[in-house]
Design a protein around this nucleic acid. Sequence first.
DNA 1: CTGTTAGCGCCTTCAG
DNA 2: CTGAAGGCGCTAACAG
Lengths: 326, 326
Amino acid sequence: MKITIKDVAKQAGVGIGTVSRVLNNGSVKKETRERVEQAIRLLNYKPNTYARGLKSNHTNTVALIIPTIWHPFFSEFTYYIETFLEKNGLKLLLCNANHNSEKEREYIQMVKQNKVDGIIGITYSHIDQYVSSSLPFVSIDRHFSEDVVYVTADNEAGGILAAQELIKRGCQSLCFIGGHQTAINETKKRRQAFESECHNQNRDYYVLDMPEPILDLDHQLTSFFKKHPDIDGIFAINDTMALDVIRFLNKIGKSVPKDVQVIGFDGQKHSEHSPYLVSSIAQPIETMAKVAVELLIDIIGKKDVAQRTILPVTFVAGKTTLNKEE
Amino acid sequence: MKITIKDVAKQAGVGIGTVSRVLNNGSVKKETRERVEQAIRLLNYKPNTYARGLKSNHTNTVALIIPTIWHPFFSEFTYYIETFLEKNGLKLLLCNANHNSEKEREYIQMVKQNKVDGIIGITYSHIDQYVSSSLPFVSIDRHFSEDVVYVTADNEAGGILAAQELIKRGCQSLCFIGGHQTAINETKKRRQAFESECHNQNRDYYVLDMPEPILDLDHQLTSFFKKHPDIDGIFAINDTMALDVIRFLNKIGKSVPKDVQVIGFDGQKHSEHSPYLVSSIAQPIETMAKVAVELLIDIIGKKDVAQRTILPVTFVAGKTTLNKEE
DNA sequence: CTGTTAGCGCCTTCAG
DNA sequence: CTGAAGGCGCTAACAG
């Protein structure tokens, strides 16, 4: 049996308008309000979200689009997004896009259908045309061609920092190992900045930048290291790649960090209280989430917001680099 | 400007009922249907979810309650849940409960408010009284006192298997290390079954079962291993605990798996294509998710369903056990 | 087969 | 300050 506002009104002996008013903090005589509140409790009445949404045209729900939740970086990010949404009375609808742009588009449609109020997205597919600046959308790590609001870590500073940290730790022969996709995204700057810093410091460096999806990683790594056996400092485009590379290095009998030092990017952990997976350039994930949520709320509230926000990165020492020589 | 069904009807020169029918695959003359579909495309019309929900009283949205998404086990589980929901045209609302039963209750309320159609929950708090069997709720790993539908891995078989695998690999002195909470849950059977199997096989075993939250783990481990320095086979209640224990063992100079072999529980990976974190009793996470979704859909559809589903576990070899002696 | 109509539960005027 | 009435966009039942 569904309890509606009508039942409450009858129970309290008032009109439904009055009940609505107490629900929405309208002005109601204190005594009447109490009577209504009691009736609400008595009947265990819950306002129907749909009826509300139909009128007010908003749902207090935000969609988050990520490639997959089954990944420490995205799960941490999602964790914080949910936390901040919660603080603002918003709910989170989760979408594992899996590089399926169809699915991403579906969620974009949902904004128009009033199923969600806005979207926060980490997406690497070509959905530029569907994301216009008129849509309440905050992009992470991804600069769309149109002027869509986005938040990103300072990938450029990260690339530079990675080179500096490796050099500081005595590496002589550096390299970058990563993968790339066709869609433009901010992560490409990691490599660029790393290269330019190597250049500035007059260091040799090599680059292995593979087009994704990477199917034969070990094969490619084998020939890369065969060609450059002297490499002793690696900057991997992210922690996952770093782990893969480390696994490979161990397989071919190289020790990390003794023979080769490795720095990843992201600053991942298994879970909140775990140690870092690898030495890494850590993204300020919590802050990124916080800013993304705040921006989205402002956009939904029709306020003007900064089109781009770049947050600082830091080096976090794990077990894949030596201690700094100072 | 909002496009409604009315606009479409006018554009197509038909009544709104007809438009509704083409939207819901009612019987419409082919020619008329085409005209309507064209109008829909032309106006880029999207049916309003709220208006629909208001009528039909369902939202095609399911809430998932987990302690935290920032954890490989839960993020994998969530990944599969979302996948299966998606296949059934359902959306996922994510709730990091963080052991906050207040928040869990809030989501339970949402079912009553028609904000979600049902709930799948991994919850370790005391919300029994709010979850009645009348609610579309599927519980994972948790047996509520009322007859709530639940899905769980075979924790009992897992405990036995863990003991067998350790013994098979030559361990002489076994132990169980875990934590427990006040709320009843299926994971307690891991310890019980492990103990009884040790008993059956006439093996010595020790137990360190700490009340959660565990604040001084290292401290407790220190005194435990001081008391039992001969332990060479450990069954940890889950992979996270296994990792913590391994970290501790390394700290005190013991090598895993050479000196001590460790088996966890869950079968966690960082992400889809990563190796197992530790040797482990793997839960059939994908199947659990699939079954949970199917059960929930059946419950929502008022069908009768099995009250409990127990799924088989398997041993997966990681790097924390020796090869089997066969 | 198709147009019309009556609500779904709520919020918001608008009188009283 | 409060009750009644209209309508949000849609579906389903009912005539035609």
